[in-house]
């Protein structure tokens, strides 16, 4: 299990990175934390001609609160850095709680927030969290930057609304409104595994955002647990049956909404 040969670039600026990614003659991929890409390369399921490593791009390394109070996460920020930041735990408790379920410490130390979004495993926690929190994903490409709402970003299994030559540069998580409550629940085979099925829920005074994940080709944003059974399109795989995922999605949605409401009220 050794990866095939590839060209390796570690540009120092985003502009250089975009230039490399924009070269249509070479099939390049972005290397951020590598926690999803490198296993696929070791199995030779992914055989990119070149990797563009973000490790030297300082302008993408930030975790800050923007002028509008949103949490801005640069493309180099790891999941571990996010968890270590007390401002995240205090201001975005749903995000914090959900990210503790991502893999293990050895994964979170390398894995990036934006990388998980771009990779879009529908059983992964971060796409669901982005959707529940109404995040916006900023992508950059040859034609400049654009912002994509989480609702529009996740398309299907491992597919997102990125055009050729584009990469994710930032994820913005709006501050949950005052008086909101949250809940995060998932069922996994083992501690640290991808979820068989899970729910991320944010109850704000004006809006309830209930996200079911692991139950369709992308996380699903719903308003009410009553919609879950009809909305999900779960996979039947060796870890769980489709019917299991449907039943448990309904169950977790109900539990999560109740918990989030309780937290909102308290």
């Amino acid at each position: 299990m050794k990866p095939a040969s590839f060209d390796y670039h570690a540009p120092a600026t985003l502009a250089e990175a975009l230039e490399l990614l924009g070269d249509d003659a070479v099939e390049s991929r972005v290397l951020a934390g590598g926690q999803s890409l490198v296993p696929m390369m070791n199995f030779r399921l992914a055989v990119p001609e070149a990797l563009v490593d973000l490790r030297r791009i300082e302008e993408l390394r930030y975790l800050r609160t923007g002028a509008d109070g949103a949490l801005e996460v640069g493309a180099r920020t790891t999941q571990a850095e996010l968890l270590r930041d007390p401002a995240v735990a205090a201001g975005w408790p749903l995000l914090h709680a959900g990210v503790t379920h991502v893999g293990h410490p050895q994964v979170r130390s390398r894995g990036t927030v934006c990388g998980s979004l771009a990779h879009h495993d529908p059983h992964g926690e971060l796409p669901a969290l982005a959707l529940a929190l109404g995040a916006t994903i900023t992508v950059a490409g040859p034609d400049g930057r654009r912002r994509i709402a989480a609702e529009d970003f996740f398309v299907s299994f491992y597919e997102v609304a990125l055009e050729s030559g584009e990469m994710v540069v930032e994820a913005r998580f709006p501050a949950p409104p005052a008086g909101s409550g949250w809940s995060f629940r998932e069922i996994a085979r083992r501690h640290g595994d991808f979820a068989l099925v899970g729910v991320a829920c944010l109850v704000a005074p004006a809006e309830t955002r209930l996200v079911v994940f692991g139950a369709a080709e992308r996380p699903l944003l719903l308003a009410d647990p009553g919609e879950v059974a009809a909305a999900v399109r779960p996979l039947d795989d060796l870890h769980a049956s489709a019917e299991y995922r449907r039943q448990v999605a309904v169950q977790l949605a109900g539990e999560a909404l109740a918990e989030a409401r309780e937290r909102a009220g308290g």
């Binding site: 296993p39 130390s109 390398r110």
Partner: peptide, 27 residues
């Protein structure tokens, strides 16, 4: 395992635990 599950290859990289089978040496 060389796919980031077993953890046998864990090392500290700049103080953080990482799976060295999921990092290229050039990184």
């Amino acid at each position: 395992c060389e796919h980031g599950v077993c953890g046998a290859c864990t090392v500290l990289l700049d103080g953080e635990p990482v799976r060295s089978c999921l990092v290229f040496a050039v990184q």
